[in-house]
């Protein structure tokens, strides 16, 4: 049981690391959202794997569902923002978002 938890946590660390790499290096705003999504996947996996290892799977699942719901709200809002920004700047480049002009 503990070995499985260790294995899962190793992959959680890799997923969060990949997501952070994406957030730090990519310039496309949609790619940044994909990075956030990958980090959220790592968090969900960590919750469920910990619940499975400690035999508290019900609580872990309800927390994982909460994370997923919050994630959907974040992604929907962020994508709406990106579409609106794209109408103004005609680009998805995050470097063009440095001006705070109306």
């Amino acid at each position: 049981m503990n070995n499985l938890w260790i294995l899962n946590m190793g992959f959680v660390a890799l997923l969060v690391g990949i997501g952070l790499y994406c957030l730090l290096t990519m310039k496309n705003t949609v790619k940044l959202l994909i990075g956030i999504e990958i980090i959220a996947k790592g968090v969900t996996l960590a919750l469920v794997a910990s619940g499975y290892a400690r035999e508290n799977l019900m609580v872990a699942q309800s927390l994982a569902i909460t994370v997923i719901v919050v994630d959907v709200a974040v992604i929907a809002t962020a994508l709406a923002l990106i579409i609106n920004i794209n109408r103004h700047t005609k680009s998805l480049d995050v470097r063009k978002l440095t001006k705070l002009k109306g």
């Binding site: 999504e37 469920v48 872990a60 994982a64 569902i65 997923i68």
Partner: peptide
């Protein structure tokens, strides 16, 4: 974790 799996499949 069936419920988390169903949510992951349908929502994400």
């Amino acid at each position: 974790a069936v419920y988390a799996g169903v949510f992951e499949l349908s929502v994400v």
